[in-house]
Design a protein around this nucleic acid. Structure first.
Lengths: 156, 156
DNA sequence: ACTGAAATCGTTGCTGC
DNA sequence: GCAGCAACGATTTCAGT
């Protein structure tokens, strides 16, 4: 777990550059530069500074998993027998490709995960065989996302 | 809501290309091409085909929001008075920048949202003022993510 | 920190296989 | 559907301010 002890200080120009690229990482730098009113070289310098600061983690190509048959998204609250088995359970969850998020949360559950499956049958297999099969998992509660209406990054 | 009625058919080479770029959208195409054993031009052709199919939604620059002071992530289950107020509530949620995901789910809640705030005080403001202030919202249940251990896309 | 130009590298289009 | 090459466009670097 990475410890964050200090914020990165950025100005309005940095924010504009980041907001552009957070929407579309392939947006030409010269276009962004023209929009701001500085040259492409200046934008590039700022991007290098932001990369070095660790604020920029990288870039990802975003695909629509539904077009590959992944049509069932679900959230699963996981109860663990003892709190001590948490890191072990997380390691086991990492090995399940259908698990795309995993959180250690306050409240009823020890662990909260987001899974993406092809259909309900696939989800059932992941729940019963993979997740329930992990040592220490006593019970799970599942919520199927019938429709995701918002999916975005924070506006900075 | 986009209706998906047919899957996009892709082969192993397409999968390899996509998996590379889903991890790092800036990965040089020539490098990927060499890895597969075809030319960069061929990789381009396939990418254009995949874009046209709608499978590729775009690319995003990924930043670490914690370095900008956004250190509190939470999941909020929202109870609505009547099911009919759902689309209206979603529209109101879209106007709250701290709401980064919104799902229509099975189970106890009508709507399930993921919010990203600077700290607990900020979260409290978003909950009490913004979310609870939406017409039709009767009650909310909040789970704070103390630590996100997995965050990835589906492996195809 | 930014500019402007030069060099480098990635992308796209074309022709032939 | 892919290779090879040429033309284009974008990124990156660097001296100068």
């Amino acid at each position: 777990m990475k410890i964050i002890d200090q914020n990165v200080v950025i100005d309005g120009i940095d924010k504009t550059i980041l907001n552009f690229l957070m929407e579309d990482a392939k947006r030409p730098i010269l276009e962004i530069a023209k929009n701001i009113g500085i040259t492409g070289a200046a934008v590039h310098q700022r991007l290098r500074k932001l990369e070095k600061s660790g604020l920029i983690e990288g870039s990802r190509l975003i695909i629509d998993p539904r077009l590959l048959g992944y049509k069932t998204m679900a959230f699963v609250g996981v109860y663990l027998d003892k709190a001590v088995s948490n890191p072990l359970a997380v390691n086991k969850l990492k090995e399940i490709p259908e698990v795309i998020e995993c959180h250690y949360t306050t409240g009823n559950w020890s662990i909260f995960v987001k899974v993406l499956c092809k259909d309900n049958e696939h989800l059932m297999k992941v729940l019963n065989k993979n997740i329930q099969g992990i040592e220490g998992v006593s019970r799970t509660e599942t919520f199927i996302s019938l429709n995701q209406q918002i999916n975005r990054q924070i506006k900075i």
